[in-house]
Simulated scan of single mutants.
Amino acid sequence: MSISAANTNPALNTLSAFGNSAATPAAGAKGAAKAAAAGADASKLGATQSAQEQSDRFLKLLVAQMSNQDPLNPMDSAQVTSQMAQISTVQGVQTLNKTVSGLDSQFTQLQTMQGAALVGHDVATDGNSLRVDADTHKGEGGFQIDSPATSVNVDILDPAGATVGTVKLGPQEAGSHPFDFDVPATAQGKALTFRVSAMNNDAKLDSKSFAFNSINAVSSTNGKLAVELDDGRRVDYADVRAFY
């Protein structure tokens, strides 16, 4: 996360502001050399990498201009003050960018540490895998509908896509709903999935399935927090529907 500033070149603007200040004749070759040096510094400004470098070059230009100004036609102090304020603004923005970047990194680390407390908890994520308890052989899953349904049926499918059973839930309100299913002996030990069919009288309703899993680990990649689930999936923290 960073804050951008306009590409300000205060020193070059200062040269323009001082354009009406002529060098005195007494300056001679020495004044010309200083002016040439100032011009060389200005030509390098486009490639500067930091506000500090711009500030240093600006001060060199300022000293060169003051050394060679015409006492009868001095430089405009108001414009000098304006240019110095711009330099200060550029430095401030650069410092702020560094501060914000550091805070962002610390926030990610803190989020990861807090996320570690979620290990072992259950979550609901998008998916249609039926989680089955190895001891009770009871499966569970969930779904969401955006409008009331007069009837909802959940078909439980084996790896070949054949239906091994159906959960008839009847009328359901809009929102998220869990369900469970007693897995028959013929389907135990298989990776089961489910398919939701929601109807409002004769109209078919859209539904979204979600699966229940346990969190095995929490990780962070490129500043994004993710949870690693017991089925091997890695899901972004923002995509978790609910924690239990």
Score class of each variant (00 low, 15 high):
S88N: 12
V235G: 08
S219W: 04
L169F: 01
H121L: 11
Q52K: 08
P10A: 03
S16E: 13
F181G: 08
A37D: 05
A85C: 04
G28M: 07
D202C: 10
L110T: 10
A27R: 13
M84G: 13
V123L: 01
A185F: 09
L157C: 05
E173Q: 15
S147L: 15
V164Y: 00
Q144P: 12
P74I: 03
F143L: 00
A187W: 02
V235A: 03
F58P: 06
L96D: 08
P10F: 03
M113A: 15
A27C: 13
V152S: 03
R241T: 06
D158A: 05
K204F: 10
R241Q: 12
D122S: 15
P159I: 02
T89V: 09
M84S: 10
V196G: 01
K30I: 13
T125W: 06
T125Q: 07
F194Y: 02
G102T: 09
A6E: 14
F143Q: 01
A187N: 02
I3H: 13
E53T: 00
S151I: 02
T24R: 12
Q114K: 11
G102D: 04
A134W: 14
S2M: 11
V80E: 10
F243K: 09
S176T: 01
Q49G: 09
D135N: 14
A85Y: 07
S101F: 05
M1Q: 13
R233E: 06
G223D: 01
A116V: 12
S77V: 09
A32V: 05
I156M: 02
N9I: 10
M75G: 14
Q49C: 08
N153H: 14
L103S: 14
N9F: 13
N128R: 08
Q83L: 12
